[in-house]
Amino acid sequence: MELRHLRYFVAVAESGGFSRAARRLYVSQSALSEQIADLEAELGVQLFDRSRLRAALTAPGELFLKEARKVLGSADQAMKVARDSASGDLGEIRIGFFTGGVGPNFSRLIQRFRQAHPRVRISLHEMIPALQWKALAEGRIDIAFTRRLGVSNDAHLRVEVLRKDPLYAVLPRNHPLAPGPVDVRALANERFVLCVRETSPALFDKVIEMCSEAGFSPEIANTANVWSSIVMLVQAGEGISILPTNTLQELPKSGLAFCPLKQKNAWVELVMAWSPERESTVLHHLQQIIREAGGRV
Results as ranks from 00 to 15, higher is better:
Ala186Asn: 11
Ala169Leu: 09
His175Gln: 05
Ser200Ile: 00
Val170Leu: 14
Ala188Cys: 11
Asn189Val: 02
Lys206Ala: 11
Thr199Glu: 15
Ala155Tyr: 08
Cys195Ser: 12
Leu203Gly: 06
Asp205Ala: 07
Leu171Ser: 10
Val184Ile: 15
Val193Cys: 11
Glu198Ala: 15
Pro166Cys: 05
Asp165Ala: 15
Val193Thr: 01
Arg173Val: 12
Asp183Thr: 03
Pro179Leu: 00
Asp154Lys: 07
Asn189Leu: 05
Leu194Tyr: 07
Asp183Cys: 11
Ser152Ile: 03
Pro181Asn: 03
Val159Leu: 05
Pro179Gly: 02
Ile208Leu: 15
Arg173Met: 12
Lys164Ile: 00
Val159Tyr: 09
Lys206Glu: 11
His175Asp: 14
Leu162His: 03
Val182Asn: 03
Arg163Ile: 01
Leu162Cys: 12
Arg191Gly: 08
Glu190Tyr: 05
Glu160Ala: 09
Val207Thr: 10
Val184Ala: 06
Val161Met: 11
Ala169Gln: 10
His175Pro: 06
Ala186Arg: 15
Glu160His: 03
Glu198Cys: 11
Glu209Gly: 00
Leu157Ser: 06
Ala178Glu: 02
Ile208Phe: 15
Glu160Ser: 03
Pro179Asp: 01
Val196Met: 10
Asp154Phe: 10
Pro166Ile: 02
Asp183Ile: 04
Ala155Trp: 04
Asp183Met: 04
Leu167Gln: 01
Glu198Pro: 13
Ala202Ser: 13
Glu209Cys: 10
Leu177His: 12
Arg173Asn: 07
Phe192His: 00
Asn153Ala: 09
Leu171Gln: 09
Arg191Ile: 02
Val207Asp: 05
Arg173Lys: 15
Ile208Tyr: 15
Arg197Val: 09
Ala155Cys: 00
Val161Phe: 01
Asp205Glu: 12
His175Cys: 09
Arg197Met: 05
Leu194Arg: 10
Arg173Thr: 02
Asn153Lys: 09
Asp205Ile: 04
Lys206Pro: 11
Tyr168Glu: 08
Phe192Met: 12
Pro176Met: 00
Asp154Met: 01
Phe204Arg: 12
Val159Met: 06
Val170Cys: 11
Glu198Gln: 14
Phe192Pro: 07
Arg197Ile: 00
Pro176Lys: 03
Pro201Ala: 02
His156Val: 04
Tyr168Val: 10
Val207Ile: 15
His156Phe: 02
Val182Met: 04
His175Lys: 06
Arg158Tyr: 08
His156Thr: 12
Arg185Val: 13
Glu160Gln: 12
Ser152Glu: 13
Ile208Trp: 14
Glu209His: 14
Leu177Phe: 04
Phe204Pro: 06
Val196Cys: 07
Val182Thr: 02
Arg185Trp: 05
Asp183Ser: 11
Arg158Asn: 05
Pro179Thr: 02
Leu171Cys: 08
Val170Lys: 13
Glu190Ala: 15
Asp154Thr: 03
Leu187Cys: 12
Ala186Phe: 05
Pro181Gln: 00
Leu167Ile: 01
Asp183Gln: 11
Ala155Phe: 08
Thr199Arg: 13
Val207Tyr: 01
Asn153Phe: 10
Asp205Gln: 07
Ala178Met: 05
Glu160Asp: 08
Cys195Thr: 14
Leu187Tyr: 06
Val170Tyr: 10
Phe192Ile: 03
Leu187Met: 14
Leu203Arg: 03
Val193His: 06
Glu190Ile: 02
Val151Asp: 10
Val184Arg: 05
Lys206Cys: 08
